[in-house]
């Protein structure tokens, strides 16, 4: 937790039209840190994550990733994206490609890896999420949990320094949530920087170094799990939120 910063938000503001979705966000995530973002829906947590790899633009302030200020206009967003993995709520696998091709596309086209090398890396990534045996199948032939693990493998195949998760288990049937969470716990143990938007408080308790809670575009709590889940804490908003979801 004392390493250099992977991600720094400085006075970041974002509006959708007149809707102020991010208000003066200040946040740092250290290299190797595992951060869980939570909060009621519409609080701006997904938007915050999208600002890290430039899928969403922000109107003022700075988002700095690995020392580079992320901005679509300067083209710096393109620069940092290959080092940032992203896992979406809806998986967003490419349906016309096999799982393996999903995992080798970006390494070959973006990093310029040779096909055979990209294949080895992709198979290793699929092995790590325990679906190497599904490599030649198309996404639609997999269960939801397997698809999300394939999406994680696709992110891992780029050998990212940081992985963003945007509600990775929200679109899954309950019986598949566990296999995806277990995969994510495995990644957390490997020491990769993680920013994870999730409502899975059990997961947060288990792997997070810090839990950040947002409400209406503002950060209202930022604490390690031990303090965050402390029933006697003074933060009424966290209490209200936890009462609602637990």
């Amino acid at each position: 937790m004392t390493g250099p910063n992977a991600v720094t938000f400085r006075k970041v503001n974002k509006w959708y039209g007149r809707l102020h979705v991010l208000k003066d966000i200040d946040l740092t995530v250290a290299e190797g840190e595992r951060l869980v973002l939570c909060g009621p829906s519409g609080s701006g947590k997904s938007t915050l994550v999208y600002c890290v790899n430039g899928l969403e633009e922000y109107q003022s302030g700075d988002v700095v990733v690995h020392g580079v200020r992320v901005s679509e206009d300067d083209g710096t967003a393109d620069e940092v994206r290959p080092s940032i993995g992203m896992v979406f709520q809806q998986f967003n696998l490419f349906p016309h490609m096999t799982v393996l091709d999903n995992c080798t596309l970006a390494p070959t086209k973006v990093l310029g890896a040779a096909r055979s090398e990209a294949r080895d890396v992709a198979l290793a990534a699929l092995e790590r999420v325990h679906i190497a045996d599904q490599a030649e199948k198309f996404p639609s032939q997999l269960s939801g949990g397997q698809q999300q693990r394939a999406a994680i493998a696709r992110a891992l195949a780029m050998k990212p320094r940081l992985i963003l998760f945007d509600e990775p288990t929200s679109a899954l049937d309950p019986e598949m949530v566990k296999e995806v969470l277990d995969t994510m716990v495995g990644l957390a143990d490997d020491g990769i920087t993680m920013i994870c938007v999730t409502h899975e408080m059990g997961f947060a308790k288990r792997v997070a170094d810090r839990i950040v809670m947002m409400e209406r575009g503002e950060i209202v709590a930022d604490a390690p799990p031990s303090r965050f889940f402390d029933r006697d804490q003074g933060n009424s908003r966290v209490k209200a939120f936890l009462d609602q979801i637990l």
């Binding site: 790899n53 899928l55 393109d78 994206r81 290959p82 940032i84 993995g85 992203m86 979406f88 809806q90 967003n92 696998l93 490419f94 596309l105 970006a106 086209k109 973006v110 696709r154 992110a155 780029m158």
Partner: peptide, 22 residues
Amino acid sequence: PEGQYRAAKALGLGYWHSMAYV
């Protein structure tokens, strides 16, 4: 779906690569 564009972009694929392969 918008998610396909986003996924391609998030992987670092540029405009032409996303178009051609995804």
